[in-house]
Amino acid sequence: MKATVTVMLKNGVLDPQGKAIAHALGTLGFDNVNDVRAGKVIELDLNETDAGKAKAQAEDMARKLLANGVIESFRVVVE
């Protein structure tokens, strides 16, 4: 199964990359951008056929390595 882990900085954590992207979008004339947050998408190809188990494994991986709980939150989608 494929698990997609999306890792984002928590609300309240300064995201200078997002700010820089927002600034560049403004330079390009996109003047309706209120805010930009930048994160990571990690795709896992898991040797697992049970969606529940795949999700639990991916969440375990996110807690132990893929995300740093001090600054980041994550969500897992399995398909």
């Binding site: 300064l14 200078p16 990359q17 820089a20 001090v70």
Partner: peptide, 17 residues
Amino acid sequence: LTEAGLLPGALLRNAGL
């Protein structure tokens, strides 16, 4: 050391990038 949990907090990208 912060990633290992031996010290608190985290080090983010410099504010000015």
